Amino acid sequence: MIEGARVRLKGWQRAAVAVGSAVGALLDPRRADLIAALGETTGKPAFESVLKRMKRSPEGRAVLLERPRVISANVGHAWDLPPNTFGAAYAKFMGSRNFSPDDRPPVRFMETEEVAYVATRAREVHDFWHTLFGLPTNLIGESALKVIEFEQMLLPMCALSVVGGTARFSEKQRKLFYQHYFPWALRAGMRCTDLMCVYYERHFEDDLEDVRRRWGIIPAPPPQQTAT
């Protein structure tokens, strides 16, 4: 994290960036930079709360102490792990979509180094959560994960993203989301462990199903299992 890369905003400036980012993100949900800015300008209290929880957790404290970054140089070995492992599942998720862990926009609007790192960590573990919950990266999958992220971190941006995302659904997508993914995401987000306190990189070599059980992860079931 580079101090010079961050921008200190006055109250009215923070509000202006938040409103502008919210409007822009609603018009174009693909604008990751606007969604990131919205999360930062509205999420300070939530990130500070997550920081306190991480400090109370042994594994969370290790993350804060070592400040691992989810970048290619640090996670590239996941591509060489056995196929049953969490790391290999993450590599498959990223590779099948031609995603790079280096593509996340930097955190710019957090005032302290600690909170800036928490915001960075929340942004960078997003694809770990996709992998663990077995969620696609389409609009429905992203909206479902935002429900879980809201339950885990109480970020206003997550709730706004769900509202904005579902507003763009077709009638068929909206029915599928609210009958299947939304109730599942509510259960999944409440049941699992505090996911911001997990040092994921230390578990790359663990069996995927083992870590799911350990962390209370309920993978997204096929839509036909909704009624069960």
Rank of each mutant, 00 (worst) to 15 (best):
A25M: 10
P82F: 05
G20I: 01
P82V: 10
M196C: 12
E142L: 00
I140P: 00
G24T: 06
R108I: 06
I217S: 10
C197P: 02
A37S: 14
L145N: 00
L186R: 12
S161N: 07
I218Y: 12
T85Y: 10
G11N: 14
S96F: 02
R212P: 04
C192A: 08
T166W: 02
R61G: 09
V118K: 08
R6L: 07
Y181L: 12
V211K: 12
L176M: 13
D102Q: 06
Y117L: 07
R67S: 08
D33M: 08
S49F: 04
F109R: 05
A144N: 01
R53N: 07
V162F: 04
R30M: 00
T112I: 01
T166Y: 02
E151Y: 12
V7A: 09
P83C: 01
I148F: 03
K172D: 08
I35T: 11
Q224H: 13
G39I: 00
R214M: 13
A36P: 07
Q13S: 11
A46P: 10
I71C: 00
A91L: 08
A5F: 03
P183F: 09
T85P: 07
E205D: 13
G4R: 14
F182G: 08
G165H: 04
V118L: 10
H130I: 00
D103N: 14
S72L: 12
K172Y: 07
P183K: 12
E151R: 15
F204S: 05
D210M: 13
V70C: 06
L27F: 08
Y117Q: 05
